[in-house]
Design a protein around this nucleic acid. Sequence first.
DNA 1: ACTTTTTTTGAATACGTATTCATCCGCTAT
DNA 2: ATAGCGGATGAATACGTATTCAAAAAAAGT
Lengths: 339, 339
Amino acid sequence: MANNSPIKKSYTSQDVAAIAGVSQSTVSRVFAGNTNVSEKKRKKILAAAAKLDYKPNAHARSLITRKSMMIGIVMRNIRNPFYSAVLEIFHNRLSAKGYHLIFINSENEEIQEDEINRLLEYNVAGVIITDALLSSSASQKFKRYGISVVLFNRYTENLESSAVFCDNYMAAKQIATYLVELGHQSFAFISGPLDTSTTIDRLKGFKEVLEERKIKDLTIEPGHYTFESGFRSAQELLTKNKSIDCIIGGNDIIALGVMDAVRVLGLRIPDDISVVGFDNIRMAEWPSYSLTTWEQPLEEMTTSTVELLLQEIEEGNASSQVVMMKGHLVVRKTVRSRK
Amino acid sequence: MANNSPIKKSYTSQDVAAIAGVSQSTVSRVFAGNTNVSEKKRKKILAAAAKLDYKPNAHARSLITRKSMMIGIVMRNIRNPFYSAVLEIFHNRLSAKGYHLIFINSENEEIQEDEINRLLEYNVAGVIITDALLSSSASQKFKRYGISVVLFNRYTENLESSAVFCDNYMAAKQIATYLVELGHQSFAFISGPLDTSTTIDRLKGFKEVLEERKIKDLTIEPGHYTFESGFRSAQELLTKNKSIDCIIGGNDIIALGVMDAVRVLGLRIPDDISVVGFDNIRMAEWPSYSLTTWEQPLEEMTTSTVELLLQEIEEGNASSQVVMMKGHLVVRKTVRSRK
DNA sequence: ACTTTTTTTGAATACGTATTCATCCGCTAT
DNA sequence: ATAGCGGATGAATACGTATTCAAAAAAAGT
């Protein structure tokens, strides 16, 4: 079957100029938003452009201006609903400002390295990194090329990049205090990978409180930020150690896995075992779970991240800023007093 | 604090050429993969490039070749786990082929129109559309500009674009038959928006079987593809109509919402009410739900989509192809025989 | 009316690459 | 040795825009 709509070579500012009876420069000025064009010619140009359905070529523009309207977003686990939400929000915010999102998601470090190099080829205006492994080396690389970087929900020790994250240390302390004061005695913390700042801080805060309170019964089980990981870890723990009365998930997805493992074993939540998560993803409030968890202020965090990034991009602000936010405990139905 | 790593202007093929003692043309030939370069010079050039950490400028390349290595992916609801998974897989596949993904997600039609125009400015090599509203008008627009389009999980009546989707009509018929033969009498179908091919086909197949079997007790409740929508619809339906013994969700997320609504009302699944979904997202197999559902062959669908797209892009294959796949019923624990 | 200032305008150029075309070089075949 | 040939190379050019610079036009001031 023949293609009856022949491929239409797209028109250029030259074509528009010819129709409008002006020079290419003037057409360019109109579309670049550079003001100094008389109202009369502007109208003529816009009419001609509309007629041809003219759209400026972004590559040519990026080439000459040496900046693109693209922002890279690097993730590790888009299947985690927390990050799906994050992606959605970042897209909304940045799209409204006229930026395009280049999406990178990979658990494979090598592939990420590769893709990051390609981001450099595209001269992205900025990058948001929500992944731990790459935070340090990658952000240095971007900086060397003068590309703005903001870490989201992560930070690096030397604070060389801007970063937005929650005070996970304090959050964990508050959760621990809450649980201890309700009379829990035997804890298990099923965490994410031990190499992320998030995990480290949460564990640290939690441990500190238990030490202060002289509670020694704490099992730490590192895993991944997935349902399956939480499910399996909880199953193992509970078959080995019958005394556990409280399990903390490194994030909500882990906690949901824990809850299902507990139930499969015939135990009840919160009567037999309390469960707590982190993040307050939407599923946490689904009636089947009603998970008590720590809410990260997603809106504020994303807003702040975008602000920092655009500030660096548009104002060339090179000094890195760090924003640490508070969250708050959301009490639902997975924790019971044991006094 | 002063920025101690000054912004390094990135190097060009000219710079590499100067160091390697060759012309810019030859450097270009090496990086474009155009063979005809002597081994001796190639090595020199690669050495020089490595020394400068040279990366070809993608914009300049796109400008001259008139094609970019970017692919737009248009979604409507990334928070739906089915589409998170879809995005992940598309990213893996396309990234492996050297393409970058420009991600667009929006429920707002106007914003999407806007962004799609901007995709045109970037001269994307191809577009994957997983959204209904835009399927027709947008894909026509892309085609006019010679941009390849593949619809995923959607199709348009006139079949003007390539498309990959499941035979939702047959799937619904099989589900309906399965349920009827188990003795269900009173059905409710809580669907997604009525303007998507997916929804229409699923409803059509389902209705047909019930009509054949002379079952008239079917309530159709259109909504959105979200948990809340399923939850609320089920709640309303069940308080009004006590006789319902089976609820079908337009997708899994709706079905999960239905399940929670049923439970909140104190009814049991599957003893009092059977529930069925569509998609077989990961959560469907979580023990708390164990949802009986229809599996869409995600891997095959995405693989096929990528194949079609790359074929159109790389071979300039203009004729549109349509691939329709079968899925299969995944029986878990939310349906009981009522005979 | 005439200078001075400001705003508009177009010609020319640059961005960094791919590609055409002509040249050159090293070979083989005669 | 010379014609003929194929592969390797560089000069020049094009892609489509933004921007500089100088000239022209318009506006403002005297």
